[in-house]
Design a protein around this nucleic acid. Structure first.
Length: 287
DNA sequence: CTCAGCTCCTGCGGGC
DNA sequence: TGCCCGCAGGAGCTGA
């Protein structure tokens, strides 16, 4: 899926169309994504105003003026397409006219402003749910999430405590959303490369200095990706329909067989499979 | 509790 | 051109 930086980019793209705006009609073109939509979702959204649009981990949270929040997860292939946003229309950037319905357009929010927000998700690993705003922290999808990697609660002390004694590879530990929320396959690979840690290294066998380097690397990687507007792989588009461009900054992800970018390093980047997912790393730099 | 493996779904690119 | 295979950003679930 879009990882934290992409979700943040999507959230920012949605702000002008959603925050403070009223939903005139919620059109559900099927009854489920990964899970069935909650009972009466269309009616519960219709007429509601979005008070605030937030992000937690890879979830977008739209707080409504009725005490409920819409929880949105983009899964692997979900994207949001805005159209008809006259107020902030920039030629060539936003679709002004509503485009024809496309395959996999599953949910359409028709805003009172005339804007339209279309959730498109070919693989349907995405999800939407409604939950009382006051009870969001206890929602099954959110309750177990670890701290935000860009927040104060995520630091070397915390990470060291969570990794202590763990034999699982650091790659798997960082993908575990209970330990830190929002990282995915790409940014874990990138952060481990920056911190020069081998993806197979046992999580509990990383020294304190290297854990500090790792927390710094995670934060720097995410910050740069957000600043760059999120990455863009096959299925990903920014909310305004434009491509992101952080993919040009990947140092290891998807670069199997080419030379390590670290100055002076002669390593050839490798791809291995860990718990069914590709890890890219430099066998010389990363230990 | 921890951990590896499987699973949901569709689309795309490469090899033949 | 068409078919088959492997692979893809997530993460819940099962069973050892």
């Amino acid at each position: 899926m879009p990882e934290l930086p992409e979700v943040e980019t999507v959230r920012c793209g949605l702000l002008p169309a959603m925050e403070g705006q009223r939903i005139a009609r919620a059109e559900l073109r099927r009854a489920d994504l990964r899970w069935p939509f909650p009972d009466g979702m269309s009616a519960r959204l219709t007429g509601a105003r979005v008070v605030q649009l937030r992000r937690r981990s890879k979830y977008i949270l739209a707080d409504l003026d009725r005490g409920e929040s819409l929880i949105i997860h983009l899964g692997m292939s979900g994207r949001m397409v805005i159209s008809g946003l006259a107020a902030v229309h920039v030629p060539g950037q936003f679709h002004f006219e509503h485009p024809a319905l496309e395959k996999h357009d599953h949910v359409i929010l028709h805003m009172e402003s005339g804007a339209r927000i279309t959730f498109n998700d070919p693989r349907r690993f995405g999800a939407m749910d409604l939950c009382a705003t006051a009870a969001l922290d206890a929602h099954p999808l959110l309750a177990g999430l670890g701290p935000e990697p860009l927040g104060n609660a995520f630091n070397a002390d915390y990470l060291a405590a969570r990794l202590a004694g763990r034999k699982t590879p650091i790659k798997a530990a960082l993908l575990d959303q209970r330990i830190v929320a929002g990282l995915g396959n790409i940014y874990v690979c990138e952060a481990l490369f920056r911190a020069r840690i081998h993806p197979k290294r046992a999580a509990g066998r990383i020294g304190r200095a290297r854990i500090e380097a790792l927390t710094d690397a995670i934060r720097a990687t995410l910050r740069e990706a957000i600043a760059a507007g999120g990455s863009s792989l096959r299925d990903y588009r920014q909310a305004n329909g434009e491509l992101g461009y952080f993919q040009h900054s990947f140092r290891v992800y998807g670069r199997e067989g080419v030379g390590c970018l670290r100055l002076g390093c002669t390593g050839i980047l490798r791809r291995i499979v860990q718990s069914g997912r590709s890890s890219f790393y430099c066998p010389i730099c990363q230990r």
